[in-house]
């Protein structure tokens, strides 16, 4: 039987496309630790972590507010780019019930993290991260990783790596519009 080169080419193209898609899905899932559907849409895993001033902050205490949860590190250049945006966004949307929470995921000392946050003019709480908390969010193997939580405490979106400011604004607006605005306990 004579093989048609065109057919062979198309078969190769389809196999290559499937291979690429498969690797992409597997790698993305490995990077996030969980499939997208497994985390987004469910309640944000609760945690309590110490802030830079030593006082603990519990995520569920922010129920009623839209929360941007940003995992970052002092060694992360792209994280530094987002921080001034976060400072502005906190000022702009804070009065509507929006709260940014930074979670520092590096080995640097608390003093160094505090120094870095001061240099960046951070106006939102920065918590000292733990692997167990990162694991509960699917493992944070890419920095920055940012989660958006609506007023009911439900995860509505997550972003890996540096995004444009407009992406954050869109998610923040969505988070503010979803769920019930109640008086936050903190």
């Amino acid at each position: 039987m004579k093989r048609n080169p065109l057919v062979l080419f198309f078969v190769a193209a389809i196999v290559a496309a499937m291979l690429f898609a498969g690797i992409r899905i597997a790698r993305n899932n490995r990077a996030s630790g969980l499939g997208k559907g497994q985390l987004v849409g469910s309640l944000a895993p609760d945690f309590e972590l110490p802030a830079l001033d030593g006082k603990p902050l519990k995520l569920s205490d922010l129920r009623g507010k839209a929360v941007l949860l940003n995992f970052w590190a002092t060694y992360c250049g792209p994280c530094k780019i987002e921080m001034p945006w976060f400072v502005e966004l906190q000022k702009e949307y804070g009065p509507q019930g929006f709260q940014i929470v930074g979670v520092a995921m590096d080995d640097a000392s608390t003093d160094d993290i505090a120094k870095f946050a001061r240099q960046m003019g951070v106006n939102y709480p920065v918590l000292i991260g733990k692997d167990s908390v990162a694991d509960s969010y699917g493992g944070v193997s890419v920095l920055p990783t940012t989660f958006f939580v609506d007023r009911d405490g439900k995860l509505i979106a997550r972003e890996f790596g540096l995004q444009s400011r407009s992406v954050f604004v869109d998610h923040i607006k969505k988070a503010l519009s979803q769920g019930q605005a109640v008086q936050a306990q903190r």
């Binding site: 080169p5 080419f9 193209a13 290559a16 291979l19 690429f20």
Partner: peptide, 24 residues
Amino acid sequence: KILLATALFLFSAWAWAQDDLGAP
């Protein structure tokens, strides 16, 4: 030649996927 081209194509797709996706 077709088989060789197919193998090359598959390898290129694999290499492309490796480079494009997240941290190794």
